[in-house]
Write a protein that binds this DNA or RNA. Sequence first.
DNA 1: AATCGTAGCAACCGCCCTTAC
DNA 2: AGTAAGGGCGGTTGCTACGAT
Length: 332
Amino acid sequence: MAPRAPAGSSPSLSCSSSSSSPSASCTCCNESQLRRGPWTSEEDALLLRHMKLYGDRGNWRKVPKAAGCLLRCGKSCRLRWLNYLRPDLKRGSFSEDEDALIIKLHSLLGNRWSIIAGRIPGRSDNEIKNYWNFHLGKKLLKLGINPKTHKPLANSPMAEPTSKSRSSKFCHSHSFSSISSALTDDGSANEFKSPISKSSSPDCSRPIDSKNKHDLKHDPTSSSTTVPGKDHPRETHITDHQDYLGSVTSIDTSEESSIEISDDQMVPGQHHDHFFANAAHELELQSQMIMFGMDQVSSLWLPPSVDYSEPGSHAPQGDNGIIFGSESFYVR
DNA sequence: AATCGTAGCAACCGCCCTTAC
DNA sequence: AGTAAGGGCGGTTGCTACGAT
């Protein structure tokens, strides 16, 4: 499938058409002159020139005017930049390594496309989302794996009968090996190759950006914390990851295990953002160890965020919680 | 060869949440 | 506390390629 025609080749929409009326919900689009729809090459050039001069930091609402009277809202400029004009975007088809990494990260993070994209250099969240929806999702379905849960479908031959205590372990291990071998289209069995290879490792210098901070939530008034999961298809836990990914791990994730940190490591009366950020980092490193094996986890590769729970809700029953002081967490 | 129908998917919209002030 | 702006993500649109007729 050829890519959509370049923006400049599409008939430009004027604001007089009903389809290009300003968004009611976008306060920056209330000016009736603003254009919507496909970008023209002239608009792209204006925005590109501006971004090269001033970078993508600052007030997006000022960008259209500053870029040379672009008749676009700031948000539209931002999206155009992030999803199309950014010079570090790879475009083109996804590699097997990228496929594997996306599947793994999706199993870990769910539909958190921006976080997943943050670990895959040169890809935008939208691109990954589209790729997942139309490619990887279907690929997994063909293999009898539910792309949302990463578990075998109920009527799949992979969904083997399981005992009460070991069902998830068997299912996950099985589905993972199937995915691993499925990443080549020729159907040949292949060993899982870590996506974190020297040639494909993500940008190691990338810090945990501020946008991920809200994924790290903690309510000091609450004795338990749970993962915000309103749009998350699955509450995944460390043990799930271990099972699913079937990797070597040095972490004891038996049902009784937990990581405990004494109360004196907590600072009384403070929001423990820093502490929890560190904890998140630690947990994520552990996740990476689970995912990729110890030797693949580099301190240079900063982890994606780890989510903690919303205040007031609870970790699932039987979860291998992680306890910090009087707080308990789990990772999904 | 021309036309029609359909699948695939890039690009975009719009709602909603979070963050900053 | 209220408001504006930034940002994430689900869903939709519309263009292109390709097979069927």
